[in-house]
Write a protein that binds this DNA or RNA. Structure first.
Lengths: 336, 336
DNA sequence: TTGTACGCGTTATCAA
DNA sequence: TTGATAACGCGTACAA
């Protein structure tokens, strides 16, 4: 058995409360007794039972990080940075993967209800009603949403301005002389993706061009979807001169399909991808990408959550970050 | 406040113990009372406080996954699979990143001592004495090591046979006619890496060739290290005709350096990399790699840990898996 | 400065 | 089948 506070108290010949005070650096304990207690604790390698402590003070120093998909390198990057921030203030993170499954989401949410964690950060995921995420109506459970939208959202959130990101990308391609830009995106009723589509429309209309709907291709978020998207688009009436892919993995697939078809980037098709991670940096040619500021998203969301937990956040906060367009070879028009 | 068992007991007009029995499907509770209790629990969305339960039964249904480095896609893959296995049996995982820091390792280990988790899985990390990992000498804390070695190891472990992996790679390159195979690996006093070096030596000697030490290059595990390794090796007396890179990220860097130098793979240099993940699959040309069976490593280690927790594992188990050599274009000799 | 006593929410033991 | 009660290990008012 692990040594307990009671054991130390007995050995030191003092009351448990005294030991508790000594170990927690609270006032009201004599120099000598404190020294004696600390020495004993050291000697027997005493570790407070966090469950008991948590039960007593109703706090666990743990937060849940609820991930919609673990396959996204961008999401992993965010998790990594949350872990880093958490570690600095002695918080533990418990990792939950929902695979976009609402039922699993609900079940992980019960970690909050069960007082097993002090708060939760959601990263990505489907649009849901805020009611669904809210647990009980009385309870105000600390949670923040990262890159996730909720209907009638009343949660503190850290978002990426996807619309503006795609806008930038289209604008850039326009400058390079491309006009028929295909958009490989997700389903329109995924709010995140529909935002991106909005950015696309906005850039076109503001430039005085009209959008050809045949250039917008909604598909899954994985690699194969990106690959197939290229094949199917090439079968349509209008052949694009550039591609924007809005998700990391579809970008990979898209590039593969283009290459496999014997085409060259950017000579035959310009490409703007999503996510400035090791993946996109490895592709040949170097890819122009929209970069999501993962470190910042992580830091902000964790800070928000911490404040929520400590009841130091007044009202709902929403912070929107702008993705950065990193221009590389894949989107530069060839010399004329 | 969250509703508690006591509240339900009061509302149902029964004792707390009865409620506990009813909710946990334990025998000794009448049909009607049980129904009444369940209905109330449902109605008020009762969730047992896991801390209290954990305190009472000394079990948390959580395990720590202690990661030496989060930058390795292979490690992430293992974590993902552990999460999957854990979720199936209703275990939560808490994610710890040590960055190869022994102090952080120790601190995370205290999760075990503090009874906050039921067990721990270590993934990767430096060679340490078993004593260092063992917490207290009395206590038998459930833990298993994945791809990690310990001096006088008495831990249940799941390992990859790195030596055999590299052996296979060298053998394959020999068959392709390459003789001057450079090995980009880690430090020799990293046991994992020294094992790989052993495999290299073994393959050479068994084939009747002698090893030129100038072809072995020890360096860091990151991308830049791989990049620089190529540059420095090209400055040595002997120019290799093939490369084996033993870590995922160095492989990326190596390939970049080769390409940047204006060389072609495999025409100028054959390459065998490490890790069959999305990263290596994206590289051009398709890379021959040694693949670590992440899913299997994860499944086995979690199963072992579960048995350890339930005291159903007799003695120390050590399972060694063999990496698979996936042959692709990068290591095929050009036509003669 | 120190000790007593109770509460946190649950499970388990024993008696009714 | 039920209920009362102790126990898990800690924190904290309150009293001494």
């Amino acid at each position: 058995m692990q040594i307990t506070l009671k054991d130390i108290a007995r050995m030191a010949g003092v009351a448990e409360s005294t030991v508790s005070r000594a170990l927690n650096d609270k006032p009201g304990v004599g120099q000598e007794t404190k020294a004696k207690i600390l020495k004993l604790a050291q000697k027997y390698n005493y570790r407070p039972n966090q469950l008991a402590r948590g039960l007593a003070v109703n706090k666990t120093n743990m937060i849940a990080v609820i991930l919609a998909e673990m396959d996204s390198p961008g999401n992993i990057e965010i998790v990594k940075n949350i872990e880093k921030a958490a570690e600095e203030v002695d918080y533990q993170i418990i990792l939950c993967n929902t695979n976009n499954d609402l039922k699993k989401e609900k079940s992980y949410l019960s970690l909050l209800e069960a007082n097993q964690v002090d708060g939760a950060i959601f990263i990505g995921g489907k649009l849901v009603s805020s009611q669904l995420l809210r647990l009980s109506f009385e309870e105000k459970n600390p949670m923040v949403l990262v890159n996730r939208l909720a209907e009638e959202n009343f949660f503190t959130s850290v978002l990426t301005n996807y619309s503006q990101g795609i806008y930038k990308a289209v604008e850039h391609l326009f400058e390079q002389g491309f006009r028929k830009i295909a958009l490989i995106c997700g389903d329109k009723d995924n709010l995140t993706e529909s935002e991106k589509i909005n950015g696309y429309y906005q850039a076109y209309t503001e430039a005085g061009f009209s959008v050809n709907e045949d250039l917008i291709f909604s598909t899954g978020a994985d690699r194969t979807s990106g690959y197939n998207a290229f094949l199917e688009i090439m079968n349509r009436d209008i052949i694009p001169d550039a591609f924007i892919s809005t998700r990391e993995l579809t970008t990979i697939g898209l590039v593969e399909a283009i290459k496999f078809g014997g085409y060259f980037i950017p000579d035959d098709f310009a490409v703007v991808g999503y996510g400035d991670n090791i993946l996109t940096s490895v592709i040949d040619p170097p890819l122009t990408v929209l970069n999501e500021p993962a470190a910042e998203l992580a830091k902000l969301s964790f800070d928000f959550l911490l404040k929520l937990i400590k009841d130091k956040l007044e009202g709902q906060q929403i912070k929107v970050l702008t993705p950065e367009l990193i221009v590389r070879e894949s989107s530069i028009a060839k010399y004329n």
